[in-house]
Amino acid sequence: MSNSYGGGGGGGYSRTSYGAGGAEDGGGFMYGGSQGGSQSAGKGYSDESLRPVTIKQIIDAHQAYPEAPFRIDDIEVSQVTFVGMVRAISPQTTNTTFKLDDGTGMLEVKQWLDVDKQDDSKPSFALDQYVRVWGRLKSFNNNRHVGAHVIKPVTDFNEVNYHLLEATYVHLFFTKGAPGAAGGDAGGDGDSMFVDGGYGGGADGGGASEDKLRNISAKGKKFYHWLFNANGGNEGLNVHVISQGTGMSIQDVLAASEELISPGLIYTTVDDDTFAILDN
């Protein structure tokens, strides 16, 4: 089953689905299927896209007014999937609230209980375990959360890295254009573009001139290119997120950060382990 991101004019980019099946998962959710009751008239699930995101993207999503659709990269988004570590579990009478952390932020996820299924009140995962969530963006009293259709434990840590890469790729697709388009890299592989820094931005793939990167090691350049293209904003990205995105060890990321801080290419933001690009 293919999965198309866009829903609102972005169009054109398709990837494989995430396997959030309907009946076999017991979550009642299938991308491209139908969902009764909670859906507004005239717009079915088949008209919407399922987008991979980070928690920071959800927190920063634009909403013109309280009931307006959420927009990420100026594209309307309602259904999302993301991966995060379970930091808290709060069982309630009608739902279970989870606090998830993916290294870019913390977000509440609410899973409503099915009174016909006794096992719904018992999560199949524990604290400090990674899970993948499929759900819908919600806002209540100016607090954002995701109403979960399906929550599944992550059994292979590669899924954590893969999700971050795909979320970054989709972000670049909507902000910089499709591979091969103006400003893109016609010859590169989609998932390697932002890891190795080859997505737009000239020969060095980032905001620094080649002269400033001349004495930087290969790992330092990889760090810089990835961080530049990841667009972490003024808050920057945590060392763990950078490690996952670049495929580098934490030790290599920290060593590269010291190499890049010295010439003023990056700087620390909220703490000593969070870095952002220094605009020159």
Rank of each mutant, 00 (worst) to 15 (best):
G205K: 11
L265Q: 08
V83A: 05
V154C: 07
K219W: 02
S90G: 00
G44H: 04
S209F: 04
L213N: 00
V154A: 03
K212D: 12
D101H: 01
E166V: 15
T155D: 12
R71H: 10
G42Q: 05
S243D: 00
K99L: 13
E76S: 08
A203L: 11
L164I: 03
T268M: 07
G207L: 09
H171S: 13
I242S: 03
E67V: 13
G198V: 10
K212P: 02
K99R: 14
S121W: 09
A186E: 11
Y162G: 14
G264S: 02
P66K: 10
H171Q: 14
G236I: 01
N215G: 10
G33C: 12
G36N: 12
E48L: 14
T268V: 04
Q111A: 14
A20S: 08
L127Q: 08
F29E: 00
K152W: 07
Y224C: 01
T155Q: 10
D128C: 09
G201D: 12
S78H: 15
L227R: 08
G84K: 01
H225M: 12
E108V: 08
F29N: 08
G206V: 05
I261W: 05
F125I: 03
A20C: 13
R132G: 10
G7Y: 12
A23N: 10
K176R: 02
G177N: 12
A276P: 07
I277W: 01
S78M: 11
K56R: 15
Y130N: 09
G7E: 11
G28Q: 06
Y162A: 15
D279W: 09
P69R: 13
D73M: 00
